[in-house]
């Protein structure tokens, strides 16, 4: 039987698996996480320590040449309490039972911040300038998830 209601519109999935080279810097960064170390790259020109590490400093346009261990402590630069998450459908959100706090966190010794989750925290008490510390996975899996989240100090 033909469903004439559905003639007007086609739903099409695009399913494509990509294979990215993560690059030497990120590869070393992830290997560092397995050793419970946060690694940054220092620019030889402006001396900024970039975390996650980048092979090229955008401002100076030169290659970074020195590895620096940063953290595990850090400071919350900005944060948001997510009451929802994207549901992956057209513009929809799912309410979260437990809000998720996402922060821009600047590890001690780094000149940049990165986005990660703030756990073990009462969302009402998270604030900018709050001190936090990295929490590691019990067993290293050689993945970004070896760094589980940051918790308030």
């Amino acid at each position: 039987m033909t469903d004439l209601e559905n003639v007007r519109e086609l739903g099409i999935d695009i399913d494509a698996t990509y294979s990215w080279s993560v690059g030497a810097s990120m590869e070393r960064f992830v290997r560092g996480l397995a050793d419970r170390r946060l690694l940054g790259a220092r620019c030889p020109k402006c001396s900024r320590v970039l975390v996650p590490p980048r092979k090229v400093c955008e401002r100076c346009f030169v290659e970074t040449d020195e590895w620096v261990e940063v953290g595990p402590g850090g400071t919350v630069v900005s944060f948001t309490v997510g009451e929802v998450e994207l549901d992956g459908k057209a513009g929809g959100f799912k309410d979260l039972d437990v809000p998720v706090v996402t922060g821009l966190i600047k590890p001690d010794g780094a000149d940049t911040a990165f986005v990660h989750v703030i756990g073990e925290a009462d969302p009402r008490e998270v604030a900018c300038s709050m001190r936090v510390e990295a929490v590691w996975a019990d067993e290293a899996g050689g993945a970004l998830s070896d760094l589980r989240y940051f918790k308030p100090l």
């Binding site: 990509y18 990215w20 993560v22 690059g23 990120m26 996650p52 998720v100 996402t102 990165f114 986005v115 990660h116 989750v117 970004l144």
Partner: peptide, 10 residues
């Protein structure tokens, strides 16, 4: 695709 996306926080 090497950090922010697989982390899934952003």
């Amino acid at each position: 695709p090497t950090f922010d996306r697989p982390n899934g926080f952003l």
